[in-house]
Design a binder for these strands. Structure first.
Lengths: 335, 335
DNA sequence: CTGTTAGCGCGTTCAC
DNA sequence: GTGAACGCGCTAACAG
């Protein structure tokens, strides 16, 4: 009925030119006489014409849309990355299709497929673990992919991260230097490379340098939620730990609360080092000592890299490692 | 070069049927003989055919994509709503184009326009204030719009909220009942209806019931960030307040930390009531007493409402008000 | 049940 | 500089 959409044709007729010309002015093609350009623009404005991006996408095979796969927008670590992604994306005139994956493997594959069906120009993936099936889908499609804050030992697609291993080693070393001989390692599943490989290796390296034997009973796996952090404190305490390195801020907050709620003083009786520097670390008391990752930048750089890939520009390096720092705040005794 | 896309044609040829038939099986049209359907599906699978959603969108005038305008994904209040939105959206086979607006007026209008250009089937808007220009754009386009956790006194589009006014009144009444005669009102800009009208009215109503005169010097405006919350505590204290009702959780956390960092006991010396019940309220110590809004549900219901609108289904009511509760936790003395 | 035929709105040669 | 014509991949009548 009232599908009163106005098209490029209406503009053309009204301006007494061909649709090709209208298309040219809309796309900023210089081969248009200033006079006609002005006339066309006037009509466009008068008719309030708005180019149909879908038709455009069909004809040009570009949608100026990128897919973003995220485990959970509600997690500050990922939403901070997402913010960086979206800012750079809109700077380059791209839009973001955001899809929560819940780090559920089959759902991820399905989400990826609907994203590809929608002809996104590129994909940014955030997650914990890349299954073989997902990796296969990545390489099968010609759509560029960049991992943000996510590592895949098989470095086939672009990625932006920090050096989790050395950052962890440094954090744990600090904890040991402060006199803690039993430092717990609390993270998400060890099946995830970032935990099971990089962080754990950093942890072990720190122990080794201090000549402390690795003790399996000091390693804990949990969900990335403050609830499970609270629940796990008791076990950490029972294992005789006097400090903990935690792989996720929300988890760290939970762990700290688990201690505080039991009357344990932080950092006097129990020290904590967390890993992501999300704003959560500065909202709790005491403030969490943490590895200071540039979260926003990781997202931003990932998106920037993706634009290059989509543009088939030259890229020096597809595997980008950003610098980090260590911030000793309120949950560690060290200076 | 290797634009080796396989189309519905390839499938049709390979299966010895017409493209119309392929289209039918792809779209689950029942008018296809089981035998041919099976044959087609086999070919689809073999060729790994994936329908082009853009072409589909052009032909059908439906993109199964909805635009979501959000002030900042990094804010837990909004990301919680977003989570509910995305879950219901994917349940109904829709995807979400997420766009951060930074509550910047011109940017919002521009974002809305690119969303419409992309032919989204519907729009969910989250924000603080709807400018006249934006409202005009809303009603000008035939694309359905639903506000989530966002009020517009001019109820032309759909919306899902709680009763902010009575929730605030109840919270403040609690504070007064606990013996606080000077309760501060801390929120975002009063230019935003949710603060300047609903919450403030609720605040005033509570005062009136208690026969306490309204004191302008107890009203504070700030950004929705913990930083400005910390900064504002001093002024709140100077104004002689012994308690505060805060319109945003992050802001409330900041205010509390401002007090704690000065050695002020919460709730013994200063009580706080916040408004959004994001998980932040349970991550800090003491836990924040709060109005318990069903954040996830607000997003979910908003998206559900939008699906009805997009489907032109009957809807009982476009202005939905969800129930809330009051949770007295650690920042109030009341029972 | 299945095939034919128009478009959907726009980008893009290729002549003029 | 500008226009005519074709095609992008698919849906939707309309026949048969």
């Amino acid at each position: 009925m009232e599908k009163q959409t106005i098209t490029i044709y209406d503009v053309a007729r009204e301006a007494n030119v061909s649709m090709a010309t209208v298309s040219r002015v809309v796309n900023g093609n210089p081969n248009v006489k200033p006079t006609t350009r002005k006339k066309v623009l006037e009509v466009i404005d008068r008719l309030d014409y708005r180019p149909n991006a879908v038709a455009r996408g069909l004809a040009s095979k570009k949608t100026t849309t990128v897919g973003v796969i995220i485990p959970d927008v509600t997690n500050l670590y990922f939403s901070s990355l997402a913010r960086g992604i979206d800012d750079i994306a809109s700077m380059y005139k791209y839009n973001i299709i955001l899809a929560n994956s819940d780090q559920n493997d089959p759902k991820e594959v399905q989400v990826l497929n609907t994203l590809l069906a929608k002809q996104v120009d590129g994909i940014i993936y955030m997650g914990h673990k890349i299954t073989d099936e997902l990796r296969a889908e990545f390489s099968r499609s010609k759509t560029p992919v960049v991992l943000a804050g996510t590592v895949d030992p098989d470095e086939q697609v672009g990625s932006v991260n920090i050096d989790y291993e050395s950052a962890t080693e440094q954090s744990v070393t600090n904890l040991i230097a402060a006199g803690n001989e039993r430092v717990a390692f609390v993270s998400g599943s060890r099946m995830e490379p970032i935990n099971g490989i990089y962080r754990l290796n950093g942890y072990k390296a720190a122990l080794e340098k201090a000549h402390i034997p690795f003790d399996e009973s000091l390693v804990f796996e949990a969900d990335y939620s403050f609830i499970s952090g609270e629940a796990i404190y008791e076990k950490v305490e029972e294992a005789g730990a006097t400090a903990a390195f935690v792989g996720d801020d929300e988890l760290a907050v939970g762990l700290m609360n688990g201690a505080l709620d039991r009357g344990v003083q932080v950092p006097e009786e129990f020290e904590i080092f967390t890993a992501n520097n999300s704003k959560l670390t500065e909202m709790v008391r005491p403030k969490l000592s943490t590895i200071t990752q540039p979260l926003y930048d990781i997202g931003a750089v990932a998106m920037r890299l993706l634009t290059k890939l989509m543009n088939k520009e030259e890229t020096d390096e597809k595997t980008i490692v950003l610098p980090y720092n260590i911030a000793n705040r309120g949950t560690t005794k060290g200076e």
